[in-house]
Amino acid sequence: MTKDEHKEGIGGMANPRRYGIERVAYLLMRLSGLGLLAYFVAHIYETSNILRGQVGWDELLEMTSTTEGHIILSIVIGMCVFHTVNGIRVMLGHGGVGVGKPARPDYPYEPASQNYRHKIGIYSAIVLAAFAMMYGLAVLFGE
């Protein structure tokens, strides 16, 4: 990609302000995906410490028992729930499910693919992720 191409780049791709809730969901899907990938790598590193024996394992486990550890785990729970629910919505859409039927468009040309079913799916993913995070915080800090 060169300057001559005049592409918006990562900044334009990640800007969620211009195109409604669908673009917000697009950004959250990317961020949660990257977050879960990072967690997956960290999780493998963490669990591999069992090779250091009981002491090493307990040391690593203590890290997740701190306030910061609890908050990170809660964020992971939220990312996991959002990515799952929104992922199901996107997968259905990719198969042509719930994107509307082709028809002669009438002004003001509301796009059928951006219908209320998908908006409900996006808001549901956000709300469920928020609830899951709150539940996770309650469980982790309620120990």
């Binding site: 211009r18 669908e22 697009y26 996107v90 994107v99 082709p102 693919s113 951006q114 998908h118």
Partner: peptide, 18 residues
């Protein structure tokens, strides 16, 4: 990835995302 921005800006109601 079905962000749908293409359909939101189309001035002729083509709905490319669909």
């Amino acid at each position: 990835h079905f962000a749908g921005s293409c359909s939101q800006v189309c001035p002729k109601g083509v709905d490319p995302a669909m």
